[in-house]
Design a binder for these strands. Structure first.
Lengths: 216, 216
DNA sequence: GGCTAGAACTAGACGGTACAGTACTACTCT
DNA sequence: AGAGTAGTACTGTACCGTCTAGTTCTAGCC
């Protein structure tokens, strides 16, 4: 699931690999701060304490470096949300289970770095449509698929009453995520709600969801 | 509510005013297509069949022109959503009323131009935080305020059962808007759902909302 | 350990291009 | 007549990607 600019990466731990990591780290910061066009390669070189030559030895162009960074962050974030996903046991409390899932997702996504990544990718949809598609599929798309499967199962078990699992997944996902996400997208990182608020969004979102889709 | 770059606008209908409109129209297209940094003033001048001198006679800088365009579009769109807002009569069907409101909002916002405006503003949050704040307040912020007031009234009338009107407004708003909005934000204008789909989002959103907040 | 060949890296200059905003002269609409 | 505009050259700056010459690291071998 990882993408790399070249077929050969330097062996980990070597000087080359360390430089490469330094470049990636610095470039990530600069791209997130200044956007694609607003970023210049001299600043990246300076910030990573590396010569521009070395930057171009590791990444063939500004565009390649940008793509590498965005896909990397996208992969890592998507994995973080779903890696700890454990199935629901027959005797587990459904509301608590959904709330825990909702809160984990919120607390990972509604984060300054990830919010800025979203802003960056959204701003570049026309220049890099493929990148935005990947972000959608590794983010909301993946979550929606998992939730739809889960809800279909729970419907079959009689624990939920669901006609259209995909619609239900969308409702669940956005009931929980939308309010804090959209606020933070436009109002900036200062508008990111604290932990208590996020827990409340998770709780109330699940409450509404179960009122509409709970087994009768 | 309208913003203007200078305190004096040319009298409408004059050559000056016509040129100004031509510049605004052309610049809108270019900014929406290429973003702030990706836009160049020569292209705007050429597209509006006007010399660069004239562009700078009407707008003091690229930044001023950009701000003018974004605030203008934001104002117009916010007004379009709420101008036709008529209050709910005592005997009107609540579900139908909410569905109509939801559909109107969807059909205005989930539109190539407005989606591209959102992408543009979101991508420039760090460069123009004030612009993003204005977009939030004239868009979601305004809608949330109106909905919260409405829900509070309906709760007092016993037609809804609502503890927290703001939370309810957020749930309503995003139940309806989020799925199509987020798809289109990242997947591009081709992913904008057709009318039938938008109606279904409005219908299902209202259904879930009423299941959770309907009077018992 | 010490030695060497080759790879990786540094520092900065440079070519080429793009572009915001200005200057200047001639034209044209009111 | 005179304000507004066209056309276009120009200034100054920014920046991607390359090049060059000199330096430092690394891996393998004695």
């Amino acid at each position: 699931m990882t993408t790399q600019s070249d077929s050969t990466l330097p062996a980990p731990g070597t000087r080359s690999a360390r430089k490469r990591e330094a470049i990636l780290a610095a470039a990530t910061g600069v791209f997130l701060k200044s956007g694609y066009l607003g970023t210049n390669m001299d600043e990246i070189a300076a910030l990573s304490h590396v010569s521009k030559q070395t930057v171009y030895k590791h990444f063939s162009s500004k565009e390649a470096l940008f793509i590498e960074i965005v896909t990397g962050m996208t992969d890592i974030t998507g994995d973080a949300v779903h890696d700890y996903f454990h199935p629901l046991g027959d005797n587990d409390d459904l509301a608590a289970y959904l709330e825990a899932y909702a809160y984990r997702q919120l607390s990972i996504v509604v984060t300054p770095r990830i919010m800025q990544l979203r802003r960056l990718v959204i701003g570049e949809v026309s220049r890099f449509p493929e990148l935005a598609r990947v972000l959608y599929e590794h983010g909301p798309g993946r979550a929606l698929k998992i939730l739809a499967d889960l809800f279909q199962q729970l419907d079959a078990q009689g624990r939920l009453a669901i006609d259209d699992p995909v619609m239900a997944a969308e409702h669940f996902n956005w009931l929980v995520m939308s309010a804090p996400l959209n606020r933070a997208m436009l109002l900036g990182d200062d508008a990111i709600p604290g932990e208590a608020h996020l827990r409340r969004y998770a709780h109330e979102g699940v409450r509404v969801f179960l009122a509409a889709y709970g087994a009768r």
